[in-house]
Design a protein around this nucleic acid. Sequence first.
DNA 1: ACCGTTTGTGTAATCGTGTGCACAATCTAT
DNA 2: ATAGATTGTGCACACGATTACACAAACGGT
Lengths: 332, 332
Amino acid sequence: MSGMSRRRITSKELAKLAGVSSATISRAFSPDSRIGSATRDRILAVAREHGYQPNAIARSLNNQRSRLVALVVNAIGNPCEAEEQQLLVHRLQARQLLPIILCCADHSDRLQLMRLASTYQVDHVVVFSDMVSMQDAVDIFHTTKPIIVSFEPLDNENVSSIRIDGAQAADEIIDKIVRDGKKRFAYLSGTSSSWIDKLRRKWFADALTKRGLSFEAQAFGDYSYDSGFKEAVLLLHRDKVDAIICGNDVMAIGARDAARRVLGKNTPDDIAIVGQDGIAMAAWDCNDLTTLSLDHVAFIDAVVELIERHDAEVEGPHSITLTCTARWGSTA
Amino acid sequence: MSGMSRRRITSKELAKLAGVSSATISRAFSPDSRIGSATRDRILAVAREHGYQPNAIARSLNNQRSRLVALVVNAIGNPCEAEEQQLLVHRLQARQLLPIILCCADHSDRLQLMRLASTYQVDHVVVFSDMVSMQDAVDIFHTTKPIIVSFEPLDNENVSSIRIDGAQAADEIIDKIVRDGKKRFAYLSGTSSSWIDKLRRKWFADALTKRGLSFEAQAFGDYSYDSGFKEAVLLLHRDKVDAIICGNDVMAIGARDAARRVLGKNTPDDIAIVGQDGIAMAAWDCNDLTTLSLDHVAFIDAVVELIERHDAEVEGPHSITLTCTARWGSTA
DNA sequence: ACCGTTTGTGTAATCGTGTGCACAATCTAT
DNA sequence: ATAGATTGTGCACACGATTACACAAACGGT
C-alpha cells in the first residue's frame, strides 16, 4: 500500500487482475459509457486496491485534449500579477485543468519557451504578459486560440481578448489632484517597450490635456519597488514634479518611500502619488494608496468565460471589456 | 505561415513531404543519433517551413519521461512563497522542464488535485506547502520520489528533504529584544495545524526558556496581512505583550500596522515585532522589518541539487540543511 | 580484391488509453 | 413465442512519437 512500487500498473494488467478486457477498464473510468454497474464497481475496487489510475498522458494522446493550460506571465513574484494568477489557478483546478506557468523574464528565451509549451498540446493559452506580441502568440500556438489580456480590441479572429478601459477613472483621479493644486505631473512607466504601458499612460495624458496640462517628465522602471524608488528620486529632484502617476502599485509604493525618505516630502500635501492595479497590498494601512483599480474577480471571470466559449467552440472573435475604477487612499 | 492551420502536422506526414521515413524525422530532432547531416538539415528546413515540432505528449508516452514538474504550494499570491517559486520556475525552464502549479487552498480538494497531477507522470514533485503530509505525498506520487521542504530530517527513504534550521538566528534575535528590555512575548502562528509552524515557534521558545522567559500569549492567523493585523490588536490590547514573533513577514507587517494605527505604539521603542522568511518586501524602506531570514537563492539551489540527484538516480535518502540568519531592521 | 567496420535509413514494435464495430445476452411488446 | 430494441463486453485499431533490429552502402586496412 504505502510501499514504493517503482512501476505504475497499466490498464492491461489491471484487466487481467479483474478478469475483463482493457477496454472495459477504460469504460469503468468514463462516467457515461455502456458498462454494467456491477462490473464497474468491481473494477473500481480492484483499481483502488492496486493504486491504478488511468495514465493522463496516454489519454491525452488519444483524445487530442491534454487538459493543460499555458499561462504566460511576466513574473510570479510580483504581487501586481500574482493575485490574478492565484484566482485563475483556482478556477482552472476546479475544472480539472492543470496550469503550466511560463515565466517570461528575459526576452531571449521567451519565444522558445512558448514553443516548448506548445508541443504539449495545451488546450488553452492565456497571455498576461505584455512582453509578448499577439502575432507571436498566434504563430506559436497556431492550433490553440490564445486568450490575450490586452488594452485595446484586437482585430484578429485567431485571438480572443480582454480589453481594459481606465479612461474614465483616470479622469476622476486627475481631476482631484488638479483641484488639490498640483501642477507638474510625471509618468513612471513599467516598461519602455510595452504598448499596454503606452495606453495606460494615454488615459492619464488625455485627462491632463483636457485641463490644459501635460506630463512634464517621464521615467522608465521595471514594475519593481526598487525601480520605483530610484526613478522617483530623479523625478522629484531633477524635474521638480509634484505628482507622479506610476505604472503599477508596487512602483508607487517605492516612489512614496523615496519621496518620504530621500526628499522628506509627504503625500498628499507635498506630492501626489498614484498607482495602478488595485492589489490588496495597496489597501494595507501602511500604504493606503490611491490607485486605478481593476476588479480582479471580474477579470478572471472574463478569462474563464472565454475559456468556456473556446471549449464550446463558439465561432467568431471574442472580446470582453472591463472598466477600471478609482480607489481612493491617502497618497493623492 | 501565419494562417490558422487547425491541425498540427504529424511526423508521418512530414516524412512523406521530405521523402524519408518517420523514424528519420525523429532522428533529425534527437541531437545524438545516427543520421546524415545533409538529411537532417533538409528535414529541419522542411519542418520549419511547415511549422512542425515533435508532439511532446507522444514522446512522453514513449519515453516514460514527461519533463513536467509538479509544484505543490499554499498560494501563489503570498509574497512569502512567491519569491522562491519564481526562482525555481526560472531554474526549471532553463532545463527545459515545465512547472505545473498545484495550489492547495482548502483541504478537501488537495489530495484529489495531487492525484490528478500524478496521472500526468510528472518527473519530479516539489512540496512547498506545509498543509500536505509527507505520507500523502509519498502515497500519491508513488513512482516519483518527492522533494519536501521540511524543517526536520525525514526518516523516509522515499522522500528527499530540505531541512531549515533557524535556532541560532532566533536566539540572536531574542537576545537583542531581551536586552532592549522587552518582557512579555507573544507568538503569532501562521496556521494552527502545521508542524512547520510548531518547529519555528520552538526555535524562539527555546531561546526564551534559556533566559528564564516564555511566551505569555499565542494567536493563530493564516499567513495574511489581515490576520496579522487582527490578531495583533487582540494580543496588544488583551494580553498587553510588548514583543510579537510572527509566523511570516506579511503578518509582521500587519501586526506593525495594527500597533501603530490602533494602539498608537511604535517599533521598536514601545513594541518589538519580528517576521520570518526575509522576503524582499521586508527590506522596503516603509517596512524595514527585523526578520528571521532564509537565503532564497541557496534554498532553490538545494531544490535543484536534489532534482539533479534524482535524475542521476543517486540512491539513498537525501537531505540538505540550510541555516537561517537574522536580518536586522527597525522593528526590533 | 577482400573482409570488417562504420554510417545511414527503413521496418515494425512499443508506450497506455479511448472507441467504433461486432456480437451475444437480456429485455420489451405484440 | 418471436421480432426488435437495448445492454454489456471483447477485438482491434488509432493517437504520434521513439528505438531495437536489420540491412545496404560506403569506407579502410592489409
